[in-house]
Amino acid sequence: MLILVTLDTSTHVAPPAARPNRTERTPRKRSFRWWIYLALLPLAAVIGYFAYYPAVSAIFWSFFHWQPASTSTPLGFANYVTMFHDQIWWSSFRNLGFIFIFSVVAWIFPLLAAELLISLKSLRWQFVMRTLLIIPMAFPGVVTALVWGFFYSPNDGVINQTLKALGLEAFAHNWTGEASTALLSLLFVGFPFIAGLPFLIFYSSLQNIPTEVLEAAQLDGVGRFARFWQIDLPLMASQVRILVFLAVVGTLQYGFVAYVLTAGGPDNATMVPILRMINVAFQGGDWGYSAALSTTLFIITIAFSAVVVLVRRRGSTTSDGGAM
C-alpha cells in the first residue's frame, strides 16, 4: 500500500471520453512502473508457490518411486501402468458414474420445488418457503453427514427403529454396512436435495422469464404442464447445460461423505477416486503412485472445467441474450 504512494499521477489523467482501462493507448513511453509488480508480488507468490508449484511437482513425482524423506528412484511410466491394472481405482470411477447419474436424476426435486414456488401468488409465502427450503445449506456438511449416519446406524438408528415400530423389521438393514445398500445410502444423505445450487439456479431462471411471455401463453390457453415443457425448460436449457457440467466436476470431488460414513467400505463398495488417492499415500505409503492418481484426476477435472467455461461463454452470448 505504501508503495503505491509513489504513483505518478500526471500520466493518468486520461481523456474523459475514453474508458482508460479498456481502450486507452499509452500516449508516450512510460517509465518502468516497478511498484505495480511489487503490488502484485504477494498474489504471484501465493498462487505460484501454493497452487502452481504443487500441481507441477505432482506431475513430476508421478514418474518416480517417490520417497519424500529419502532418495526417490525414477520409474518412467510404471505408476501409470499400475494405475491401468488397479481394479479398485477403476471401480471407484464406476461408483462416480452412478453418483453422477443419481445426482442429475435427483434434480427432479429442486426443479419441482422451484416450479411450485414460482406458482405461489403470495410473495410473502414465496419468500418464507424459499427460506425454509434452503436453510439446510447453512448447516456444515459434516453435521448433515453425521446426523444421517446416526439415522442409518444398524441398532439405534432412526430408520431401523421406525421400521421396527411399523412392524417391518424384515426391511431393516445395516444400511451403510452392506455392500448392496451402502452407496445408495450415501447418496440419500441430504434428501430431498433441494437446498443447493440447482434449486437456486432453477428458481432464479424461472423468476427471470418475462411476464409478457407468460401472459401471452396464458391467453393462448397454455396449461401449467404445457408451460413447463414449452416455456420453462427451453428457457432454462443453457443453465441446465452448465449445471450438468458442474455436476461432473462436483462428482469428481465426491469423497467427504463417503469418508465420514463408510470410509470407502464395505469391501470398496463406496470407494471413490479421492479416497483411493489418499489411502494409497497415507496407508500404503506409495507417494509416487498417489501422485500419478492425483495427476490423472487433475487432468480429467481440468478437461471438464474447460468445457464448462466454453459452454458458459457460448451460452451467455446466444441463448441467454436471446431469452432476455
Partner: peptide
C-alpha cells in the same frame, strides 16, 4: 498473463493438490 494465471486456477479444485501440498508442508 497474470490475470490469466489466476483465471486458470478457478478451474483447478484444491483437492487435486492435496498430496503434493501435504509433502511441501511436511518438508
Amino acid at each position: 498473463f497474470i490475470y490469466g494465471a489466476v483465471l486458470v486456477l478457478m478451474m483447478v479444485p484444491g483437492l487435486a493438490n492435496l498430496i503434493p501440498l501435504f509433502i511441501i508442508m511436511k518438508d
